[in-house]
Design a protein around this nucleic acid. Structure first.
Lengths: 111, 111
DNA sequence: CCGTATCCGTATCGATACTG
DNA sequence: CAGTATCGATACGGATACGG
């Protein structure tokens, strides 16, 4: 697999371009969420997809996964500093989607 | 195919998330390029991929394709206003890729 | 020059079932 | 609760050949 990129844009997309990756990252901005909370926010993703994308984001150093050895199980996800550095991009994507695609904003969280 | 999105970010990615789409859009920002010029800037893409992604971008109203009926053939691509509105996102992705991934910038064009 | 057509392997994604 | 395992469909992407 070729991991060299000619263009920064291409490199960036390779990290956040997955079907649910940018959405996951967006929901985790400035927050810590449990697996089930994350899943509620992205209902269309199956467990398989969600777990897989989370593993990749973790491998790429964008998110941190914390497992609490309790019953019932508890796993929390949050962005690393590296992940947080994506905020300008994620916010730009959210704003654009709202403005130009008229997507109802469930991104700007209601409390 | 489900075209409804829960989140603006997801909707945005669905338009620019293709392997070469964001790179194409980026190279066309504020410019008009011929097919061959575009291909030179994205050498890794095959003719098939480049043409396919260009068709999709055209279908989604992000780029305009102009064919000149001359010999040899001449086809030019440029962003629509809709496409230009993505500039903040594309620039953010380029800046981030340069800053955090240390990709040599061939994005900021040398003349 | 600007593509399309065909074939084909791989990666992505979904559905379902199951588990500590 | 937080996943994994398995199977299968389809989309993505590359190689090559060809055409107006």
């Amino acid at each position: 697999m070729n991991k060299e990129f000619n263009c920064p844009v291409e490199a960036t997309i390779s990290l956040i371009g997955g079907k649910y990756k940018s959405v996951i990252l967006f929901h985790l901005m400035g927050k810590t969420l449990r697996y089930s909370e994350l899943h509620k926010k992205i209902p269309k993703a199956t467990d398989k997809m969600l777990a897989q994308q989370l593993r990749e984001l973790e491998k790429d150093g964008l998110i941190k996964r914390t497992v609490y050895p309790v019953v019932p199980p508890k796993t929390e996800y949050n962005l690393t500093e590296f992940g947080e550095s994506l905020s300008p991009i994620l916010n730009a994507m959210c704003n654009w989607g709202e403005s130009y695609l008229n997507i109802p904003s469930q991104c700007v969280e209601e409390s």
